[in-house]
Design a protein around this nucleic acid. Structure first.
Lengths: 214, 214
DNA sequence: GACAAACGCGAGTGATTGCTCGTATTCTTC
DNA sequence: GAAGAATACGAGCAATCACTCGCGTTTGTC
């Protein structure tokens, strides 16, 4: 999935048909992914046309297909970017000590805050992540994103609740992710200010209530 | 939305262009809606073609458009059917006394059980209801379904928690619905047996935890 | 500076799909 | 039993959209 196309340093892979990218090409790829994020955010995945993405990126449809061989590959590249950026945002905000010993409230606030910020800053995120029913190709493209998030949350859960067995950690993480996925559209859609804050509070309450029984 | 087309008893509406349906037509309409439920369940709304729905219903595309003037109208009719059927299933299962005074656990179990059954029996339901991002036309078609469910849940919440203000009832109901929406795909996708039962238990736990603080 | 590879263009293609239209059949009503 | 309305058909239209192709331009390499 998007393999060598992404690796900027042109690893000496024996790739046959994949061209060795020049700097110009790297920039274009980044432009295209950014444009896709915008268009997905506005129209959703299905209604986002590849021509619209190209136009938004300021290039021709033909040029777009020089870098991505189909629409799903663009989604996969965007998903990969999201994994990296969300990971960075979270690591920056996480403090292991708090995670282990602070009140559950505090821990949840620490995790939820950057998540909300990320979703507000990246409105395209939910187009790739928040849908329960996706076209098969998109599901595949986004699978690494899901896997990465699940692993991350499983890590958090087992740090906080070291006594839980693997099965339970798994289920708890899955449910927690699902709760966040469900609430995030409400938060993003709410007007900035007290209304949105109230929904964030609800999200924290749900998580706290659920996890305090774990 | 689908107005007179649905009313079997041919109310004396002054409808101009809407033909007075014969019995044959009523049967066809029911067939089409059932076929749509199947095809939506299998392919999702977007990938379900009107020709596929017609084929499934055993009629020609032309005949389909004799009864529905576009795809969204079919979705709206299906949504309407779901409102009625889900309402019936719930009313059958609800017991006001339990609702008022039984332990929260019991109340939640009483509400969740028919919901799960309904979702298992009507796999197309989530294609219309569970998506956070829908094409505008579909959103509109399904709006009455959403409104009906929200009202119903608000009723339940304020019966159980009569001290809550309208605002809070509203928010609590919205969040509760969102939780169910989020968990249901997990439940439906799980293998029948202990795996699915475990997810149902999780749903009940989340709701109980959330609502016990209300 | 010459050659190849990467980049770039945008009109166009092929496939899909929601929906129509001309026409034929069945039902209702008188 | 005749007329009009409803039902039925299915080939095909019009629009959309992911993607291609031929050809021109820029960049890197020797």
């Amino acid at each position: 999935m998007t393999e060598a196309r992404e690796s900027a340093t042109a690893a000496p892979e024996h790739g046959r048909s994949v061209p060795r990218r020049q700097e110009r090409g790297q920039r274009r790829i980044a432009q295209i992914v950014s444009a896709a994020a915008e268009v997905f955010a506005e129209s959703g995945y299905e209604d986002a046309t590849t021509n619209a993405i190209a136009r938004r990126a300021g290039i021709s449809p033909g040029s777009l297909y020089q870098f991505f061989s189909n629409k799903d590959e663009i989604a996969a590249a965007l998903a990969e970017r999201y994994v990296v950026e969300l990971g960075a945002a979270q690591e920056e905000a996480l403090d292991l000590e708090t995670l282990r010993s602070a009140p559950l409230d505090e821990m949840i606030a620490m995790i939820v805050a950057p998540l909300v910020e990320f979703n507000l800053a990246n409105r395209g995120f939910k187009a790739l992540f928040a849908r329960p029913d996706m076209p098969a190709a998109l599901t595949e493209a986004v699978a690494p994103l899901h896997a990465a998030l699940l692993e991350r949350v499983k890590g958090l859960v087992s740090i906080r609740f070291p006594e839980l067995t693997g099965d339970v950690v798994d289920r708890t993480a899955t449910v927690s992710i699902q709760i966040v996925r469900a609430m995030m559209p409400l938060i993003v859609a709410a007007d900035e200010g007290p209304e949105r804050d109230a929904m964030v509070v609800e999200l924290r309450r749900v998580l706290r209530a659920y996890l305090s029984g774990a």
